[in-house]
Amino acid sequence: MHHVIAPTPDSPASQAVGLDLDGTLTQPGPWLGGRIGLPQPGAIDALRTLARHRAVFVYTARPTRWLPEVADWVTWYSGLEAFVDPSPERAYWTSSGGTILVTNTKLGAAAYVDDRAVHHAGDWAITFAAVSRAIGLGRPGVCTTT
């Protein structure tokens, strides 16, 4: 079952789409030392299209010191203005019009695109099974104690 999350003024989360950087916008690979991979095929076109319709933020687990390089990468490849989130208290990004926020905080959003995500559709038995497979629970040699 699919449902549309329409942008509404009373729901700031409905305004945005969050895009993970590493392995989602970029081709898979290590990022040690601040290295940022090349864009995945189709990623930049998708980012530009989404930015025409919703507020878009790029999130990453990278430390704050690497965020300016991420913003530069987004601007270089997309041609859109990207800047580092200056607010540690921000919960939402609602500015549409093609300006991309770069953050290491997962803000409220209508949708997230992330290579490590497991979709939860209301059934924890299915979700837990998917997470368990992803992290190897139940395999020999994997700790399963709580």
Score class of each variant (00 low, 15 high):
residue 140 P to L: 12
residue 40 Q to M: 08
residue 74 V to E: 07
residue 141 G to L: 01
residue 72 D to K: 05
residue 84 V to Q: 11
residue 51 A to E: 07
residue 30 P to V: 05
residue 7 P to S: 00
residue 11 S to Q: 04
residue 70 V to D: 05
residue 19 L to N: 06
residue 65 R to D: 07
residue 25 L to F: 02
residue 82 A to I: 12
residue 32 L to F: 11
residue 116 R to F: 00
residue 75 T to C: 07
residue 15 Q to S: 14
residue 11 S to M: 02
residue 135 I to K: 05
residue 143 C to Y: 11
residue 115 D to W: 02
residue 144 T to Y: 00
residue 15 Q to H: 15
residue 33 G to D: 08
residue 97 G to D: 14
residue 63 P to H: 04
residue 11 S to A: 06
residue 13 A to R: 05
residue 89 E to K: 13
residue 75 T to R: 10
residue 60 T to A: 09
residue 127 T to N: 07
residue 82 A to M: 13
residue 141 G to T: 02
residue 74 V to D: 08
residue 87 S to K: 13
residue 140 P to W: 02
residue 143 C to L: 12
residue 89 E to T: 12
residue 57 F to P: 10
residue 22 D to R: 06
residue 123 D to C: 07
residue 46 A to W: 13
residue 13 A to Q: 08
residue 73 W to E: 07
residue 104 N to R: 09
residue 132 S to P: 10
residue 96 S to N: 07
residue 121 A to Q: 12
residue 141 G to F: 05
residue 128 F to T: 14
residue 95 S to I: 15
residue 132 S to Y: 02
residue 80 L to D: 13
residue 112 Y to A: 00
residue 94 T to E: 07
residue 82 A to S: 11
residue 7 P to E: 01
residue 117 A to W: 02
residue 105 T to Q: 15
residue 1 M to V: 12
residue 81 E to G: 15
residue 42 G to R: 03
residue 124 W to H: 04
residue 50 L to M: 12
residue 140 P to D: 12
residue 14 S to M: 15
residue 60 T to N: 06
residue 28 P to Y: 03
residue 107 L to I: 11
residue 101 L to T: 08
residue 11 S to F: 01
residue 56 V to T: 13
